[in-house]
């Protein structure tokens, strides 16, 4: 042990060094913020609560194809579909449930959806005292979709589901009448 080391040990040098560092931090702007008064900026790609979307004319995009149900790794989606009594030939989802308590927010359902009826939003504050409220049904999902439409569309763009709003227009056809395909 050198003399310097002995000296450092005696004067608690390393402790003083540490205290110097922590003392300096008294003058650094805090990195924390005061939730819920301050909130994080949520990126567009954020995978928050799921929602169902409508076409611009208000018609439901979902055709009840059940592919989201098949794609879901946590089996939290249940779709009940049938023929639309008003428009024969049109398949619609009469019931659509997402058990948000089971959902793992992987976004696979959005990736699977062949009509981009599903999207994820920036919504993350929906804690409740009643667990049953967390079984999102069709009206609730559409309500979120209507409320968070801008976020939902941004999500789809961010995750390469729709190039942009205009480009997406051309896909927006209604099953089972397919548009003539561009060759």
């Amino acid at each position: 042990m050198t003399l310097k080391e002995l000296f450092d040990k005696a004067v608690l040098r390393e402790i003083l060094d540490g205290l110097k560092t922590t003392f300096k931090h008294l003058f650094v702007k805090p990195v924390t913020f005061q939730y819920p008064h301050e909130k994080r900026a949520i990126p567009d790609a954020h995978r928050g609560a799921l929602c169902l979307l409508r076409y611009d004319d208000g018609a439901e995009r979902c055709v009840g194809c059940d592919l989201c149900e098949a794609a879901c790794p946590s089996r939290c989606i249940k779709v009940v579909s049938e023929e639309d009594p008003e428009t024969p030939l049109r398949r619609i989802a009469t019931e659509f449930y997402i058990d948000i308590t089971k959902c793992v927010f992987c976004g696979f359902c959005v990736e699977a959806c062949p009509v981009n009826a599903l999207a994820m939003t920036k919504m993350y504050e929906y804690s409740t005292a009643n667990k049953r409220d967390l079984m999102f049904d069709k009206p609730k999902l559409y309500q979120i979709g209507d409320q968070m439409l801008v976020d939902a569309k941004k999500y789809l763009v961010a995750h390469n589901q729709e190039e942009n709003d205009e480009a997406a227009m051309q896909y927006r056809y209604k099953f089972p009448y397919a548009p003539a395909k561009k060759s």
């Binding site: 055709v63 398949r91 062949p114 009509v115 099953f175 089972p176």
Partner: peptide, 11 residues
């Protein structure tokens, strides 16, 4: 063949 997979029962 049409683009019917989402609505087709045979899918």
């Amino acid at each position: 063949h049409p683009l019917d997979c989402p609505v087709c029962d045979a899918d």
